[in-house]
Design a binder for these strands. Sequence first.
DNA 1: GAAACACGGACCGGAACGGTCCTATACTGA
DNA 2: TCAGTATAGGACCGTTCCGGTCCGTGTTTC
Lengths: 151, 151
Amino acid sequence: MLRLTKKADYGLIALKFLAEHPEASAVSAKDVAEAYKIPAQLLAKILQTLTKKGLLRSQAGMNGGYALARDARAISAFEVILAIDGPLFITSCTKGEKSCELKTSCTIKEPLARVNETIAGVLQSISIQDLAEQARPAAKGQLEPLVSVTL
Amino acid sequence: MLRLTKKADYGLIALKFLAEHPEASAVSAKDVAEAYKIPAQLLAKILQTLTKKGLLRSQAGMNGGYALARDARAISAFEVILAIDGPLFITSCTKGEKSCELKTSCTIKEPLARVNETIAGVLQSISIQDLAEQARPAAKGQLEPLVSVTL
DNA sequence: GAAACACGGACCGGAACGGTCCTATACTGA
DNA sequence: TCAGTATAGGACCGTTCCGGTCCGTGTTTC
């Protein structure tokens, strides 16, 4: 259903990694790439765009690299995906100029748009911190609910 | 976020149309295509696959066409999308043979898989009938909630 | 038997995606 | 100061997928 691009995937992985290593003042793209066997050049670009979008801070030069621009709790998965893949709507006719030629045609879109909003809401409620935490504890009791949504 | 292919879009539109015309014993692909300015040949194929998946009944020959195989209430948007686009997971590494080489890498995937399940749940709870109903009433009071999900 | 329909394979152009290469710039440490 | 390591970013490229078309076959009705 929801398809994440590999880039968005890589981005989330990298941010999670950064969240897990707060002690390091900066982590290079190469380090992350090697840790997860991700193409280094590609990851570098992804991190660059995340930096441009204000999610990361970067430092050039030796011992340079990237660090979270904000607290891991204040960065949502939604932001990351949005920054990397850009806005993706369900509707193929993305409410651009001419909505759908035939206004009657798009009666389906309205309910689906609400589905889209739900998904966005779910993604917004999941922080990088959540990703990092869920990763470690290894089944300590059952997982607590991440979100609860109504649309 | 969630991206529907145009094919799935067309499929939903067509099913909604069929749900709105229960009096007709069969509606031809051409008719639906013309009503919504959808490429006829393309729509034909979509309806064919939906027929193969058991969502539609087809009848060849003159005055033939398609009709819902079940009650519009018993067909979910999820089924339609699944039938047309096939299973789409969030994870790029679609839990195939080798999950991700590095098992440690995929710690992100588990929370996202749950997001995916939520989306699926939302889509499953929306029937073709819902789409057809939401289309008509034209703001009779506020829209009632479609779903409520917890993950 | 001809028209209208469903079926289904082959094909194709374009866009997007994943990925690489190459160059420029910035910072650090010896 | 110079070499090495890092970010920054443009150009490019192969593959895949998606939307769409074309063609031929089978089936039913008039």
